[in-house]
Design a binder for these strands. Structure first.
Lengths: 294, 294
DNA sequence: CCCCACCATGAACGTTCTTCATGGCCTCCA
DNA sequence: TGGAGGCCATGAAGAACGTTCATGGTGGGG
């Protein structure tokens, strides 16, 4: 029962095919067959169901797989952690994040990283929702995650900055130009909702605030990606509250809310960041993230 | 970079010595040296500091180690998960728990398990505190944990029962024989505190309740193990509130609190329990745990 | 000061993994 | 319906890897 066998299994399952997995792993399909068979022999039964078209996990495989995946990913992280501590001049740093942050706060950080730590390649894993991000971080896909503060996270969480939330309005909106807008002033408008809304104690922030203001937000449309939501709002579909920096380059109006809302951006990982990961956190705090480090 | 190498490293670090680790792993010390050296070569530098007396992790080793440990433990869990799903007639099921539960609720469950699933050996990992339990579960030491509901846990949590909390009094105490006792009736007494007190939203339950009752509990003694605390209380050192079933066989008086307190017993794991683990959860709910299944 | 405990090293042997070559099976399509 | 092609399995041979045996170096304690 070796790491290699698990790596092979994971790849075969991900690819749904021995042949494609073999190409990806740079071995022959025969080697895969042998190894998977050996793994199945040791595990006491078949893990994969060989279908005429591709493969699928057996019930036993489903019990086995998540652990194997975590083992494989942890091993990869171990290697990267060691390399990052050693040379700091080569290797990879895997960062997981949500799409909204990837387009918003990370580009500048990545640019500085490239100049200052050229040897360490950044590998970005972007997810559409925070749930996705957390789920994949738990499975160990990345060394470090950048995103909203996780509600439940068994590991170190560092606040690297805060974002100011603004209300997005189409160009020429009557409220445009105001210094700030109270939420009840738009109580009668439809809203653009997004999968990535900040959550507080299990409830969406906006719902809580609207309830306090005495109305229930009417949803015009619900999107996965924040960038989509922003364009909806800019087109006048409805009101959206989102982080200010996600609007750069768009033809729309943004007005701060009254009272001002802020949302934390955090970096979190399974173990205290060392080497490259630690430097990345420092860079995050120093660069580009409004309110960084507090 | 194989699992075996990581397994070797973990054992060497745990044992603090190549020689002892070699014995434990049933290989020669030479094999260990070779493998660790190979691992260090691939990792880009030494992971262990060779001291005249035993070994220690280098900074790089400290970055590497936790990931390696998780990889090793996950692999072991994968194997067990597969075997448990396969035969269900052999293998091991690793259960992590806190000492108080190990002596309180588990004996009966384990007895039934032995009769009904004799082939699957139970391996118990007992920890003194819930913090210890959670920390070790995160590192993947066991397939399933039994204990109080974890505050932050990234995985399935099942309530398997509730325990009634009672106030422990020495034999002949004036309050003994009462149907129930309010907490403010013992406001002037010293308390026996225990590391394993139920926690609610980050604060110890007892502190919250006493604050509500208008006093601050005065601590007579603080213990690690609940069983110690129970004996303290039975000896008249102070008042203790703990689960009723932890008193079986002791010469002391237990009086329910007014209002009644209950604490949940949960089973939690990293992935949905399958096979042996799933059956164990079922057994927990069916057996011996007051209020099981709700 | 010598001996013991402890880890490193090099060469030989046994095991394991990969490849090459080939075979079986199912599906799609003429 | 029969052949072509995609897909995984299998068996044998060679390469790669891990283990052992034997031995060397180093520091601490009697």
């Amino acid at each position: 029962m070796s790491l290699r066998q698990m790596q092979y299994l994971v790849t075969v399952v991900e690819q749904g095919s021995f042949t494609r997995a073999a190409e990806l792993l740079h071995v022959t399909q025969s080697a895969l067959s042998h190894q998977i068979k050996a793994l199945e022999r040791e595990s006491g039964g078949p893990l994969l169901e060989r279908l005429p078209r591709g493969v699928r996990l057996t019930p036993m495989g489903r019990a086995y797989f998540p652990h194997a995946e975590l083992a494989v990913r942890s091993a990869a992280q171990a290697r990267r952690a060691a390399l990052a501590t050693a040379g700091a001049e080569s290797g990879e740093l895997h960062i997981a994040t949500v799409h909204a942050h990837a387009v918003g706060v990370l580009p500048e950080v990545c640019a500085r990283w490239g100049r200052e730590h050229g040897g360490v390649r950044l590998v970005l894993h972007e997810y559409a929702t925070t749930e996705d991000l957390f789920a994949h971080m738990e499975r160990g896909v990345a060394d470090l995650a950048v995103g909203p503060r996780p509600e439940k996270w068994p590991g170190p969480v560092t606040v690297v900055g805060t974002e100011e939330m603004v209300m997005v309005l189409p160009p020429g909106d009557p409220l445009a130009g105001r210094a700030a807008v109270r939420i009840d002033e738009v109580a009668d408008r439809p809203w653009v909702r997004c999968a990535l809304e900040p959550v507080l104690a299990g409830r969406r922030w906006l719902d809580v605030e609207c309830e306090r203001a005495g109305f229930t937000p009417r949803t015009a449309v619900r999107t996965q990606h924040t960038s989509t939501a922003v364009r909806m709002a800019a087109a006048g579909v409805g009101v959206l509250i989102t982080a200010a920096h996600e609007l750069t380059g768009l033809d729309c109006t943004a007005v701060p809310t009254d009272p001002p809302w802020r949302r934390e951006i955090t970096a979190f990982s399974r173990v205290p960041p060392t080497g490259a990961a630690a430097r990345f956190v420092t860079l995050l705090r120093e660069t580009g993230v409004p309110g960084g480090g507090r």
